[in-house]
Design a protein around this nucleic acid. Structure first.
Lengths: 298, 298
DNA sequence: AGCTCTTATGAATCATTGA
DNA sequence: GTCAATGATTCATAAGAGC
Protein backbone atom coordinates (compact mmCIF):
# COMPACT_ATOMS: atom_id res chain seq x y z
CA UNK A 1 0.00 0.00 0.00
CA UNK A 2 1.57 3.21 -1.15
CA UNK A 3 0.65 6.80 -0.55
CA UNK A 4 -0.35 9.38 -3.13
CA UNK A 5 0.74 12.93 -2.45
CA UNK A 6 -1.13 15.97 -3.72
CA UNK A 7 0.44 19.33 -3.02
CA UNK A 8 -0.96 22.76 -3.66
CA UNK A 9 1.55 25.58 -3.45
CA UNK A 10 0.83 29.29 -3.50
CA UNK A 11 3.23 31.50 -5.38
CA UNK A 12 4.83 32.18 -8.73
CA UNK A 13 6.01 28.90 -10.23
CA UNK A 14 9.23 30.69 -11.19
CA UNK A 15 10.12 30.81 -7.50
CA UNK A 16 8.32 27.79 -6.11
CA UNK A 17 9.96 25.41 -8.56
CA UNK A 18 13.42 26.30 -7.25
CA UNK A 19 12.68 23.96 -4.36
CA UNK A 20 12.28 20.99 -6.66
CA UNK A 21 15.17 18.88 -7.95
CA UNK A 22 16.19 18.37 -11.54
CA UNK A 23 14.54 15.60 -13.54
CA UNK A 24 11.72 15.09 -11.08
CA UNK A 25 8.35 15.25 -12.84
CA UNK A 26 7.05 12.74 -15.35
CA UNK A 27 4.47 15.09 -16.83
CA UNK A 28 3.77 18.79 -16.84
CA UNK A 29 0.30 19.63 -18.04
CA UNK A 30 -1.03 23.14 -17.75
CA UNK A 31 -3.21 25.84 -19.12
CA UNK A 32 -1.38 29.09 -18.39
CA UNK A 33 -3.12 32.44 -18.28
CA UNK A 34 -3.74 33.39 -21.88
CA UNK A 35 -2.43 36.73 -22.98
CA UNK A 36 -4.71 39.67 -22.38
CA UNK A 37 -7.49 37.60 -20.91
CA UNK A 38 -8.76 37.85 -17.38
CA UNK A 39 -6.58 40.89 -16.99
CA UNK A 40 -8.39 41.88 -13.85
CA UNK A 41 -8.28 38.55 -12.10
CA UNK A 42 -5.00 37.10 -13.19
CA UNK A 43 -2.50 39.84 -13.68
CA UNK A 44 -3.04 39.98 -17.42
CA UNK A 45 0.06 39.52 -19.53
CA UNK A 46 0.05 41.58 -22.71
CA UNK A 47 0.30 39.58 -25.94
CA UNK A 48 3.48 41.36 -26.97
CA UNK A 49 5.12 40.56 -23.67
CA UNK A 50 3.94 37.01 -23.39
CA UNK A 51 6.99 35.14 -24.70
CA UNK A 52 9.30 37.22 -22.55
CA UNK A 53 7.16 36.43 -19.53
CA UNK A 54 6.92 32.75 -20.28
CA UNK A 55 10.52 31.83 -21.05
CA UNK A 56 12.06 32.08 -17.56
CA UNK A 57 9.27 29.86 -16.28
CA UNK A 58 9.63 27.29 -19.04
CA UNK A 59 13.36 27.24 -18.27
CA UNK A 60 12.49 25.96 -14.81
CA UNK A 61 10.02 23.49 -16.29
CA UNK A 62 12.74 22.16 -18.54
CA UNK A 63 14.91 21.58 -15.51
CA UNK A 64 12.40 19.78 -13.31
CA UNK A 65 11.03 17.56 -16.09
CA UNK A 66 12.55 14.11 -16.47
CA UNK A 67 14.23 13.40 -19.79
CA UNK A 68 11.57 10.81 -20.58
CA UNK A 69 8.78 13.13 -19.48
CA UNK A 70 6.38 15.31 -21.42
CA UNK A 71 5.18 18.91 -21.25
CA UNK A 72 1.67 19.63 -22.50
CA UNK A 73 0.71 23.26 -22.99
CA UNK A 74 -2.93 24.18 -23.58
CA UNK A 75 -3.19 27.60 -25.15
CA UNK A 76 -4.97 29.62 -27.84
CA UNK A 77 -4.30 33.02 -29.29
CA UNK A 78 -7.10 35.57 -29.42
CA UNK A 79 -8.22 37.88 -32.16
CA UNK A 80 -6.62 41.31 -31.85
CA UNK A 81 -7.63 44.04 -34.29
CA UNK A 82 -9.30 41.50 -36.52
CA UNK A 83 -6.24 39.27 -36.69
CA UNK A 84 -5.08 36.22 -34.80
CA UNK A 85 -2.18 37.30 -32.64
CA UNK A 86 1.11 35.52 -33.32
CA UNK A 87 2.46 35.19 -29.80
CA UNK A 88 1.74 31.48 -29.61
CA UNK A 89 3.66 30.84 -32.82
CA UNK A 90 6.53 32.89 -31.47
CA UNK A 91 6.38 31.00 -28.20
CA UNK A 92 6.76 27.66 -29.98
CA UNK A 93 9.81 28.93 -31.84
CA UNK A 94 11.29 30.36 -28.65
CA UNK A 95 10.73 27.17 -26.69
CA UNK A 96 12.58 25.19 -29.33
CA UNK A 97 15.51 27.58 -29.02
CA UNK A 98 15.37 27.00 -25.29
CA UNK A 99 15.94 23.30 -25.85
CA UNK A 100 12.45 21.83 -26.09
CA UNK A 101 11.42 19.52 -28.87
CA UNK A 102 8.04 20.42 -30.39
CA UNK A 103 6.83 16.88 -30.74
CA UNK A 104 3.17 17.29 -31.58
CA UNK A 105 0.25 19.66 -31.71
CA UNK A 106 -3.04 18.20 -30.57
CA UNK A 107 -6.26 19.98 -31.37
CA UNK A 108 -8.85 20.22 -28.63
CA UNK A 109 -12.18 20.61 -30.37
CA UNK A 110 -14.53 22.39 -27.98
CA UNK A 111 -17.87 20.93 -28.82
CA UNK A 112 -19.79 23.56 -26.91
CA UNK A 113 -17.85 26.65 -27.73
CA UNK A 114 -18.92 30.12 -26.76
CA UNK A 115 -21.82 31.54 -28.75
CA UNK A 116 -21.69 34.77 -30.66
CA UNK A 117 -21.92 36.28 -34.11
CA UNK A 118 -19.66 38.68 -35.93
CA UNK A 119 -19.59 39.97 -39.47
CA UNK A 120 -16.14 38.58 -40.29
CA UNK A 121 -15.53 35.64 -38.00
CA UNK A 122 -17.09 32.42 -36.82
CA UNK A 123 -17.03 31.10 -33.29
CA UNK A 124 -13.70 29.79 -32.07
CA UNK A 125 -14.21 26.11 -31.34
CA UNK A 126 -10.67 24.82 -30.85
CA UNK A 127 -7.53 25.25 -28.77
CA UNK A 128 -4.00 24.02 -29.12
CA UNK A 129 -2.49 21.35 -26.87
CA UNK A 130 1.19 21.61 -27.67
CA UNK A 131 3.37 18.66 -26.76
CA UNK A 132 7.00 19.34 -25.92
CA UNK A 133 9.70 16.90 -24.88
CA UNK A 134 13.33 16.92 -23.80
CA UNK A 135 14.20 13.92 -25.93
CA UNK A 136 12.45 11.81 -28.51
CA UNK A 137 12.64 8.88 -26.12
CA UNK A 138 9.68 9.70 -23.96
CA UNK A 139 7.16 7.50 -22.23
CA UNK A 140 3.81 7.06 -23.93
CA UNK A 141 1.17 4.56 -22.84
CA UNK A 142 -1.09 4.54 -25.86
CA UNK A 143 -3.23 1.65 -24.72
CA UNK A 144 -4.49 3.66 -21.77
CA UNK A 145 -6.45 6.06 -23.93
CA UNK A 146 -7.82 3.64 -26.45
CA UNK A 147 -11.42 4.11 -27.37
CA UNK A 148 -13.70 1.16 -26.87
CA UNK A 149 -15.20 0.83 -30.27
CA UNK A 150 -18.17 -1.35 -29.38
CA UNK A 151 -19.48 1.00 -26.74
CA UNK A 152 -18.84 3.97 -28.89
CA UNK A 153 -20.75 2.45 -31.77
CA UNK A 154 -23.61 1.45 -29.53
CA UNK A 155 -23.88 4.93 -28.09
CA UNK A 156 -23.52 6.59 -31.41
CA UNK A 157 -26.25 4.52 -32.96
CA UNK A 158 -28.55 5.08 -30.05
CA UNK A 159 -28.17 8.81 -30.17
CA UNK A 160 -28.33 9.02 -33.92
CA UNK A 161 -30.98 11.51 -34.89
CA UNK A 162 -32.20 12.89 -38.13
CA UNK A 163 -30.22 16.03 -37.53
CA UNK A 164 -27.10 13.91 -37.34
CA UNK A 165 -28.00 12.35 -40.61
CA UNK A 166 -28.59 15.70 -42.25
CA UNK A 167 -25.29 16.95 -40.99
CA UNK A 168 -23.32 13.93 -41.94
CA UNK A 169 -22.96 13.91 -45.63
CA UNK A 170 -20.68 10.92 -45.74
CA UNK A 171 -23.01 8.75 -43.75
CA UNK A 172 -25.83 9.54 -46.10
CA UNK A 173 -23.77 8.84 -49.14
CA UNK A 174 -21.66 5.91 -48.11
CA UNK A 175 -24.27 4.16 -46.01
CA UNK A 176 -24.04 4.07 -42.27
CA UNK A 177 -24.68 0.35 -42.15
CA UNK A 178 -21.58 -0.42 -44.10
CA UNK A 179 -19.47 1.44 -41.56
CA UNK A 180 -21.08 -0.40 -38.68
CA UNK A 181 -19.93 -3.70 -40.11
CA UNK A 182 -16.36 -2.44 -39.91
CA UNK A 183 -16.65 -2.05 -36.16
CA UNK A 184 -17.77 -5.60 -35.54
CA UNK A 185 -14.90 -7.69 -34.25
CA UNK A 186 -12.79 -4.73 -33.18
CA UNK A 187 -12.95 -3.75 -29.55
CA UNK A 188 -10.56 -0.87 -29.21
CA UNK A 189 -9.12 1.77 -31.47
CA UNK A 190 -6.27 4.21 -31.01
CA UNK A 191 -7.32 7.84 -30.94
CA UNK A 192 -5.97 10.58 -33.20
CA UNK A 193 -4.44 13.95 -32.41
CA UNK A 194 -7.88 15.58 -32.44
CA UNK A 195 -9.65 15.51 -29.07
CA UNK A 196 -13.36 16.15 -28.71
CA UNK A 197 -14.26 17.42 -25.27
CA UNK A 198 -16.97 19.76 -24.11
CA UNK A 199 -16.12 22.55 -21.72
CA UNK A 200 -17.58 22.07 -18.31
CA UNK A 201 -20.41 24.42 -17.66
CA UNK A 202 -21.99 23.46 -14.39
CA UNK A 203 -22.56 25.95 -11.65
CA UNK A 204 -19.25 27.43 -10.65
CA UNK A 205 -18.28 30.67 -9.08
CA UNK A 206 -14.76 30.82 -10.39
CA UNK A 207 -13.53 30.95 -13.93
CA UNK A 208 -13.15 27.47 -15.23
CA UNK A 209 -9.97 26.41 -16.91
CA UNK A 210 -9.97 23.21 -18.81
CA UNK A 211 -12.43 20.37 -18.40
CA UNK A 212 -11.28 17.42 -16.33
CA UNK A 213 -11.32 15.19 -19.38
CA UNK A 214 -8.41 17.09 -20.91
CA UNK A 215 -5.71 16.63 -18.22
CA UNK A 216 -7.13 13.18 -17.56
CA UNK A 217 -6.45 12.12 -21.12
CA UNK A 218 -2.85 13.36 -21.07
CA UNK A 219 -2.15 11.96 -17.62
CA UNK A 220 -3.28 8.53 -18.75
CA UNK A 221 -1.30 8.80 -21.93
CA UNK A 222 2.00 10.03 -20.51
CA UNK A 223 2.22 8.68 -16.95
CA UNK A 224 1.65 5.54 -14.95
CA UNK A 225 0.51 5.17 -11.37
CA UNK A 226 2.70 6.86 -8.73
CA UNK A 227 4.33 9.08 -11.30
CA UNK A 228 4.64 12.80 -10.56
CA UNK A 229 2.48 15.38 -12.35
CA UNK A 230 3.01 19.14 -12.24
CA UNK A 231 0.66 21.98 -13.08
CA UNK A 232 2.56 25.28 -12.67
CA UNK A 233 -0.58 27.35 -13.36
CA UNK A 234 -3.02 25.26 -11.41
CA UNK A 235 -6.01 27.57 -11.21
CA UNK A 236 -8.77 25.83 -9.33
CA UNK A 237 -6.74 22.63 -9.21
CA UNK A 238 -8.25 20.50 -11.93
CA UNK A 239 -4.97 18.76 -12.72
CA UNK A 240 -4.26 17.95 -9.10
CA UNK A 241 -7.78 16.69 -8.61
CA UNK A 242 -7.62 14.41 -11.62
CA UNK A 243 -4.10 13.22 -10.75
CA UNK A 244 -5.26 12.18 -7.32
CA UNK A 245 -8.19 10.31 -8.80
CA UNK A 246 -5.84 8.46 -11.12
CA UNK A 247 -3.35 7.61 -8.37
CA UNK A 248 -0.64 9.95 -9.56
CA UNK A 249 1.33 12.20 -7.24
CA UNK A 250 0.98 15.83 -8.14
CA UNK A 251 2.01 19.39 -7.44
CA UNK A 252 -0.18 22.34 -8.34
CA UNK A 253 1.14 25.89 -8.14
CA UNK A 254 -0.84 29.07 -8.44
CA UNK A 255 -0.07 32.67 -7.73
CA UNK A 256 -3.54 33.51 -6.43
CA UNK A 257 -4.34 32.45 -2.85
CA UNK A 258 -8.04 32.20 -3.67
CA UNK A 259 -7.39 29.60 -6.32
CA UNK A 260 -5.12 27.67 -4.00
CA UNK A 261 -7.85 27.59 -1.39
CA UNK A 262 -10.33 26.35 -3.94
CA UNK A 263 -7.93 23.68 -5.10
CA UNK A 264 -7.27 22.67 -1.51
CA UNK A 265 -10.97 22.30 -0.92
CA UNK A 266 -11.41 20.13 -3.98
CA UNK A 267 -8.71 17.81 -2.80
CA UNK A 268 -9.97 17.77 0.74
CA UNK A 269 -13.44 16.98 -0.46
CA UNK A 270 -12.06 14.07 -2.33
CA UNK A 271 -10.20 12.93 0.74
CA UNK A 272 -13.37 13.17 2.77
CA UNK A 273 -15.26 11.05 0.31
CA UNK A 274 -12.53 8.49 0.47
CA UNK A 275 -12.59 8.58 4.19
CA UNK A 276 -16.25 7.74 4.16
CA UNK A 277 -15.79 4.94 1.70
CA UNK A 278 -12.81 3.30 3.32
CA UNK A 279 -12.77 2.73 7.04
CA UNK A 280 -9.06 2.03 7.31
CA UNK A 281 -8.10 5.44 5.99
CA UNK A 282 -5.68 7.10 8.31
CA UNK A 283 -6.59 10.71 8.68
CA UNK A 284 -3.79 13.23 8.58
CA UNK A 285 -5.10 16.72 8.82
CA UNK A 286 -1.79 18.30 9.56
CA UNK A 287 -0.47 17.48 6.19
CA UNK A 288 -3.68 18.47 4.50
CA UNK A 289 -3.50 21.86 6.10
CA UNK A 290 0.06 22.34 5.00
CA UNK A 291 -0.90 21.64 1.46
CA UNK A 292 -0.28 17.93 1.24
CA UNK A 293 -3.03 15.47 0.79
CA UNK A 294 -2.47 11.78 1.13
CA UNK A 295 -4.53 9.15 -0.45
CA UNK A 296 -4.35 5.45 -0.01
CA UNK A 297 -3.72 3.15 -2.80
CA UNK A 298 -4.05 -0.59 -2.55
CA UNK B 1 -27.51 33.42 -68.14
CA UNK B 2 -23.90 34.45 -68.10
CA UNK B 3 -20.97 32.33 -69.09
CA UNK B 4 -18.65 30.80 -66.56
CA UNK B 5 -14.99 30.64 -67.50
CA UNK B 6 -12.75 27.88 -66.22
CA UNK B 7 -9.12 28.12 -67.19
CA UNK B 8 -6.37 25.61 -66.59
CA UNK B 9 -2.86 26.92 -67.13
CA UNK B 10 0.33 24.92 -67.18
CA UNK B 11 3.39 26.48 -65.60
CA UNK B 12 4.82 27.94 -62.41
CA UNK B 13 2.27 30.30 -60.88
CA UNK B 14 5.15 32.72 -60.27
CA UNK B 15 5.34 33.28 -64.04
CA UNK B 16 1.78 32.59 -65.13
CA UNK B 17 0.30 35.12 -62.73
CA UNK B 18 2.27 37.94 -64.35
CA UNK B 19 -0.37 37.92 -67.08
CA UNK B 20 -3.11 38.75 -64.62
CA UNK B 21 -3.97 42.26 -63.50
CA UNK B 22 -3.85 43.64 -59.97
CA UNK B 23 -6.89 43.20 -57.74
CA UNK B 24 -8.51 40.61 -59.93
CA UNK B 25 -9.44 37.52 -57.89
CA UNK B 26 -12.08 37.38 -55.18
CA UNK B 27 -10.71 34.23 -53.60
CA UNK B 28 -7.50 32.24 -53.68
CA UNK B 29 -7.86 28.77 -52.23
CA UNK B 30 -5.09 26.24 -52.54
CA UNK B 31 -3.29 23.30 -51.09
CA UNK B 32 0.33 23.83 -52.12
CA UNK B 33 2.88 21.04 -52.31
CA UNK B 34 3.81 20.28 -48.74
CA UNK B 35 7.44 20.42 -47.83
CA UNK B 36 9.38 17.20 -48.11
CA UNK B 37 6.38 15.13 -48.96
CA UNK B 38 5.54 13.81 -52.39
CA UNK B 39 9.08 14.68 -53.37
CA UNK B 40 9.05 12.21 -56.20
CA UNK B 41 5.80 13.37 -57.71
CA UNK B 42 5.76 17.05 -57.10
CA UNK B 43 9.19 18.51 -57.16
CA UNK B 44 9.67 18.33 -53.38
CA UNK B 45 10.59 21.53 -51.64
CA UNK B 46 12.78 21.01 -48.60
CA UNK B 47 11.30 22.17 -45.28
CA UNK B 48 14.15 24.57 -44.63
CA UNK B 49 13.72 26.18 -48.02
CA UNK B 50 9.95 26.30 -47.98
CA UNK B 51 9.41 29.88 -46.84
CA UNK B 52 12.01 31.18 -49.24
CA UNK B 53 10.32 29.27 -52.06
CA UNK B 54 6.84 30.41 -51.13
CA UNK B 55 7.32 34.14 -50.59
CA UNK B 56 7.87 35.26 -54.23
CA UNK B 57 4.72 33.38 -55.18
CA UNK B 58 2.64 34.80 -52.36
CA UNK B 59 3.87 38.23 -53.41
CA UNK B 60 2.13 37.69 -56.74
CA UNK B 61 -0.95 36.35 -54.96
CA UNK B 62 -1.05 39.51 -52.89
CA UNK B 63 -1.02 41.54 -56.06
CA UNK B 64 -3.76 39.70 -57.97
CA UNK B 65 -6.13 39.39 -54.99
CA UNK B 66 -8.76 42.08 -54.60
CA UNK B 67 -8.59 44.11 -51.41
CA UNK B 68 -11.92 42.64 -50.29
CA UNK B 69 -10.82 39.13 -51.24
CA UNK B 70 -9.51 36.23 -49.19
CA UNK B 71 -6.60 33.80 -49.42
CA UNK B 72 -7.11 30.35 -47.91
CA UNK B 73 -4.03 28.19 -47.51
CA UNK B 74 -4.50 24.51 -46.64
CA UNK B 75 -1.27 23.20 -45.18
CA UNK B 76 0.16 20.97 -42.46
CA UNK B 77 3.71 20.47 -41.31
CA UNK B 78 5.11 16.99 -41.28
CA UNK B 79 7.01 15.30 -38.49
CA UNK B 80 10.75 15.47 -39.12
CA UNK B 81 13.11 13.63 -36.76
CA UNK B 82 10.30 13.09 -34.30
CA UNK B 83 9.37 16.75 -34.23
CA UNK B 84 6.80 18.87 -35.99
CA UNK B 85 8.71 21.08 -38.36
CA UNK B 86 8.28 24.81 -37.85
CA UNK B 87 8.18 25.99 -41.45
CA UNK B 88 4.43 26.63 -41.37
CA UNK B 89 4.77 28.83 -38.30
CA UNK B 90 7.61 30.70 -39.97
CA UNK B 91 5.56 31.03 -43.11
CA UNK B 92 2.71 32.68 -41.23
CA UNK B 93 5.10 35.18 -39.67
CA UNK B 94 6.75 35.85 -43.04
CA UNK B 95 3.42 36.36 -44.81
CA UNK B 96 2.44 38.93 -42.22
CA UNK B 97 5.66 40.80 -42.88
CA UNK B 98 4.82 40.65 -46.56
CA UNK B 99 1.62 42.55 -45.91
CA UNK B 100 -0.96 39.83 -45.31
CA UNK B 101 -3.30 39.87 -42.36
CA UNK B 102 -3.56 36.50 -40.60
CA UNK B 103 -7.27 36.68 -40.01
CA UNK B 104 -8.09 33.18 -38.86
CA UNK B 105 -6.92 29.61 -38.61
CA UNK B 106 -9.58 27.03 -39.41
CA UNK B 107 -9.02 23.43 -38.43
CA UNK B 108 -9.91 20.81 -40.95
CA UNK B 109 -10.66 17.68 -38.96
CA UNK B 110 -10.10 14.70 -41.26
CA UNK B 111 -12.63 12.24 -40.05
CA UNK B 112 -11.25 9.23 -41.89
CA UNK B 113 -7.59 9.95 -41.60
CA UNK B 114 -4.92 7.58 -42.77
CA UNK B 115 -4.64 4.46 -40.64
CA UNK B 116 -1.39 3.60 -38.95
CA UNK B 117 0.37 3.18 -35.64
CA UNK B 118 3.61 4.56 -34.27
CA UNK B 119 5.18 4.14 -30.84
CA UNK B 120 5.33 7.84 -30.03
CA UNK B 121 2.65 9.47 -32.11
CA UNK B 122 -1.02 9.14 -32.94
CA UNK B 123 -2.51 9.47 -36.37
CA UNK B 124 -2.57 13.02 -37.70
CA UNK B 125 -6.23 13.82 -38.18
CA UNK B 126 -6.18 17.56 -38.86
CA UNK B 127 -4.76 20.20 -41.14
CA UNK B 128 -4.60 23.95 -41.02
CA UNK B 129 -6.69 26.16 -43.28
CA UNK B 130 -5.07 29.53 -42.82
CA UNK B 131 -7.11 32.57 -43.76
CA UNK B 132 -5.23 35.65 -44.94
CA UNK B 133 -6.61 38.98 -46.09
CA UNK B 134 -5.37 42.26 -47.47
CA UNK B 135 -7.70 44.32 -45.30
CA UNK B 136 -10.12 43.61 -42.50
CA UNK B 137 -12.95 44.70 -44.76
CA UNK B 138 -13.40 41.51 -46.74
CA UNK B 139 -16.47 39.82 -48.16
CA UNK B 140 -17.98 36.98 -46.16
CA UNK B 141 -21.31 35.35 -46.92
CA UNK B 142 -21.93 33.49 -43.70
CA UNK B 143 -25.49 32.47 -44.49
CA UNK B 144 -24.28 30.29 -47.35
CA UNK B 145 -22.65 27.78 -45.04
CA UNK B 146 -25.15 27.61 -42.20
CA UNK B 147 -25.84 24.23 -40.65
CA UNK B 148 -28.93 22.76 -39.00
CA UNK B 149 -29.21 23.43 -35.29
CA UNK B 150 -28.73 20.61 -32.85
CA UNK B 151 -31.61 18.60 -31.46
CA UNK B 152 -31.39 20.45 -28.21
CA UNK B 153 -33.08 23.47 -29.75
CA UNK B 154 -36.35 21.65 -30.29
CA UNK B 155 -36.90 21.11 -26.60
CA UNK B 156 -35.09 24.17 -25.43
CA UNK B 157 -37.36 26.65 -27.11
CA UNK B 158 -40.63 25.05 -26.21
CA UNK B 159 -40.92 27.07 -23.09
CA UNK B 160 -39.05 30.25 -22.30
CA UNK B 161 -38.16 30.30 -18.64
CA UNK B 162 -37.65 33.42 -16.61
CA UNK B 163 -33.99 32.58 -16.12
CA UNK B 164 -33.51 33.09 -19.82
CA UNK B 165 -34.52 36.69 -19.39
CA UNK B 166 -32.23 37.74 -16.56
CA UNK B 167 -29.10 35.74 -16.96
CA UNK B 168 -26.79 37.10 -14.35
CA UNK B 169 -23.35 38.26 -15.30
CA UNK B 170 -20.98 35.70 -13.83
CA UNK B 171 -17.60 36.87 -15.07
CA UNK B 172 -17.99 39.09 -18.06
CA UNK B 173 -21.23 40.98 -17.77
CA UNK B 174 -22.34 40.44 -21.27
CA UNK B 175 -26.08 40.61 -20.78
CA UNK B 176 -26.58 37.21 -22.23
CA UNK B 177 -29.85 35.62 -23.24
CA UNK B 178 -31.80 38.83 -23.18
CA UNK B 179 -33.98 37.90 -26.09
CA UNK B 180 -34.43 34.20 -26.43
CA UNK B 181 -37.43 34.80 -28.63
CA UNK B 182 -34.95 35.49 -31.40
CA UNK B 183 -34.32 31.77 -31.56
CA UNK B 184 -37.89 30.67 -31.95
CA UNK B 185 -38.44 29.47 -35.48
CA UNK B 186 -34.77 29.20 -36.28
CA UNK B 187 -33.52 25.89 -37.51
CA UNK B 188 -30.07 26.87 -38.78
CA UNK B 189 -26.98 27.94 -36.92
CA UNK B 190 -23.68 29.45 -37.97
CA UNK B 191 -20.77 27.04 -38.10
CA UNK B 192 -17.51 27.32 -36.15
CA UNK B 193 -13.90 27.41 -37.25
CA UNK B 194 -13.60 23.63 -36.99
CA UNK B 195 -14.55 21.84 -40.19
CA UNK B 196 -15.36 18.15 -40.31
CA UNK B 197 -14.79 16.69 -43.74
CA UNK B 198 -13.79 13.23 -44.77
CA UNK B 199 -10.86 12.88 -47.12
CA UNK B 200 -11.57 11.51 -50.54
CA UNK B 201 -9.34 8.54 -50.96
CA UNK B 202 -10.67 6.98 -54.13
CA UNK B 203 -8.09 8.51 -56.46
CA UNK B 204 -4.91 6.89 -55.36
CA UNK B 205 -2.89 8.09 -58.32
CA UNK B 206 -3.10 11.73 -57.26
CA UNK B 207 -0.92 12.58 -54.35
CA UNK B 208 -2.91 15.58 -53.21
CA UNK B 209 -5.83 14.72 -50.99
CA UNK B 210 -8.07 17.74 -51.22
CA UNK B 211 -11.71 16.76 -50.83
CA UNK B 212 -14.18 18.75 -52.88
CA UNK B 213 -16.07 19.72 -49.75
CA UNK B 214 -13.17 21.82 -48.54
CA UNK B 215 -12.81 24.33 -51.41
CA UNK B 216 -16.56 24.21 -51.81
CA UNK B 217 -17.08 25.45 -48.28
CA UNK B 218 -14.65 28.35 -48.67
CA UNK B 219 -15.95 29.27 -52.12
CA UNK B 220 -19.48 29.52 -50.77
CA UNK B 221 -18.29 31.48 -47.77
CA UNK B 222 -16.07 34.01 -49.51
CA UNK B 223 -17.49 34.46 -53.02
CA UNK B 224 -20.73 34.93 -54.84
CA UNK B 225 -21.74 33.77 -58.28
CA UNK B 226 -19.57 35.00 -61.18
CA UNK B 227 -16.73 35.90 -58.85
CA UNK B 228 -13.20 34.80 -59.76
CA UNK B 229 -11.45 31.99 -57.90
CA UNK B 230 -7.76 31.12 -58.21
CA UNK B 231 -5.89 27.96 -57.30
CA UNK B 232 -2.18 28.53 -58.00
CA UNK B 233 -1.31 24.89 -57.15
CA UNK B 234 -4.27 23.28 -58.79
CA UNK B 235 -3.18 19.64 -58.86
CA UNK B 236 -5.93 17.60 -60.45
CA UNK B 237 -8.20 20.64 -60.58
CA UNK B 238 -10.54 20.16 -57.66
CA UNK B 239 -10.91 23.88 -57.03
CA UNK B 240 -11.67 24.64 -60.67
CA UNK B 241 -14.12 21.77 -60.80
CA UNK B 242 -16.00 22.92 -57.73
CA UNK B 243 -15.90 26.57 -58.83
CA UNK B 244 -17.52 25.67 -62.09
CA UNK B 245 -20.24 23.70 -60.34
CA UNK B 246 -20.96 26.70 -58.13
CA UNK B 247 -21.03 29.15 -61.02
CA UNK B 248 -17.79 30.88 -60.19
CA UNK B 249 -15.16 31.75 -62.77
CA UNK B 250 -11.84 30.16 -61.99
CA UNK B 251 -8.21 29.81 -62.93
CA UNK B 252 -6.19 26.76 -61.99
CA UNK B 253 -2.43 26.73 -62.42
CA UNK B 254 -0.14 23.74 -62.11
CA UNK B 255 3.45 23.14 -63.05
CA UNK B 256 2.91 19.53 -64.10
CA UNK B 257 1.38 18.96 -67.56
CA UNK B 258 -0.13 15.65 -66.47
CA UNK B 259 -2.15 17.35 -63.78
CA UNK B 260 -3.30 20.03 -66.17
CA UNK B 261 -4.54 17.37 -68.54
CA UNK B 262 -6.41 15.65 -65.75
CA UNK B 263 -7.95 18.92 -64.65
CA UNK B 264 -8.91 19.76 -68.20
CA UNK B 265 -10.68 16.43 -68.52
CA UNK B 266 -12.61 16.93 -65.30
CA UNK B 267 -13.86 20.29 -66.43
CA UNK B 268 -14.85 19.10 -69.87
CA UNK B 269 -16.73 16.23 -68.35
CA UNK B 270 -18.52 18.53 -66.01
CA UNK B 271 -19.41 20.96 -68.73
CA UNK B 272 -20.96 18.14 -70.67
CA UNK B 273 -22.97 17.01 -67.67
CA UNK B 274 -24.07 20.56 -67.10
CA UNK B 275 -25.36 20.84 -70.58
CA UNK B 276 -27.31 17.63 -70.21
CA UNK B 277 -28.88 18.28 -66.84
CA UNK B 278 -29.42 21.96 -66.94
CA UNK B 279 -32.89 22.01 -65.41
CA UNK B 280 -31.92 19.76 -62.57
CA UNK B 281 -28.75 21.69 -62.04
CA UNK B 282 -30.60 24.95 -61.55
CA UNK B 283 -32.88 23.44 -58.95
CA UNK B 284 -29.96 21.93 -57.08
CA UNK B 285 -28.39 25.28 -56.98
CA UNK B 286 -31.41 26.84 -55.39
CA UNK B 287 -31.30 24.27 -52.67
CA UNK B 288 -27.66 24.90 -52.11
CA UNK B 289 -28.34 28.57 -51.69
CA UNK B 290 -30.98 27.88 -49.09
CA UNK B 291 -28.40 26.14 -46.96
CA UNK B 292 -27.72 22.50 -47.67
CA UNK B 293 -25.35 21.20 -45.08
CA UNK B 294 -21.83 20.22 -45.88
CA UNK B 295 -20.62 20.06 -42.40
CA UNK B 296 -20.61 17.42 -39.75
CA UNK B 297 -20.64 17.39 -36.04
CA UNK B 298 -19.40 14.52 -33.98
C1' DA C 1 -31.70 1.34 -12.79
C1' DG C 2 -33.02 4.34 -17.16
C1' DC C 3 -35.24 8.32 -19.62
C1' DT C 4 -37.03 13.23 -20.37
C1' DC C 5 -37.06 17.88 -19.38
C1' DT C 6 -35.09 22.17 -17.20
C1' DT C 7 -31.46 25.26 -16.51
C1' DA C 8 -26.91 27.56 -15.97
C1' DT C 9 -23.04 29.10 -18.38
C1' DG C 10 -18.51 28.73 -20.92
C1' DA C 11 -10.22 31.60 -21.96
C1' DA C 12 -15.57 35.01 -27.33
C1' DT C 13 -15.47 39.14 -30.59
C1' DC C 14 -16.60 43.50 -32.67
C1' DA C 15 -18.59 48.21 -32.97
C1' DT C 16 -19.36 52.07 -30.48
C1' DT C 17 -18.67 55.42 -27.04
C1' DG C 18 -15.96 57.86 -23.65
C1' DA C 19 -11.67 59.41 -21.40
C1' DG D 1 -4.84 59.70 -31.61
C1' DT D 2 -4.64 55.85 -28.41
C1' DC D 3 -6.57 53.15 -25.08
C1' DA D 4 -10.40 51.44 -22.09
C1' DA D 5 -15.03 50.34 -20.95
C1' DT D 6 -19.76 49.01 -22.53
C1' DG D 7 -23.44 46.85 -25.42
C1' DA D 8 -24.95 43.43 -28.69
C1' DT D 9 -24.75 39.12 -30.60
C1' DT D 10 -25.40 33.66 -29.77
C1' DC D 11 -24.89 27.70 -29.43
C1' DA D 12 -24.35 23.34 -27.19
C1' DT D 13 -23.44 20.67 -23.21
C1' DA D 14 -24.04 18.30 -18.79
C1' DA D 15 -25.70 18.52 -14.08
C1' DG D 16 -29.75 17.95 -11.72
C1' DA D 17 -34.55 17.33 -11.01
C1' DG D 18 -38.56 14.68 -12.05
C1' DC D 19 -40.83 10.47 -13.56
Amino acid sequence: MKTIETKIENGDCLNILKKYPDNFFNLIVTSPPYADSRSKTYGGIKPNEYVEWFLPRSEELLRVLRSDGTFVLNIKEKAVNGERHTYVLELILALRKQGWLWTEEFVWHKKNCFPGKWPNRFRDAWERCLQFNKSNKFNMYQEEVMVPMGDWAKNRLKKLSNTDLNRDESKVNSGFGKNVSNWVGRDMAYPTNVLHFATECYNKNHSAVFPKALPEWFIKLFTKKHDWVLDPFAGSGTTADVSQGLNRNSVGIDILPEYCQLAQKRIAHYQYRLFEDEAQYESNNTEADSGICRREYT
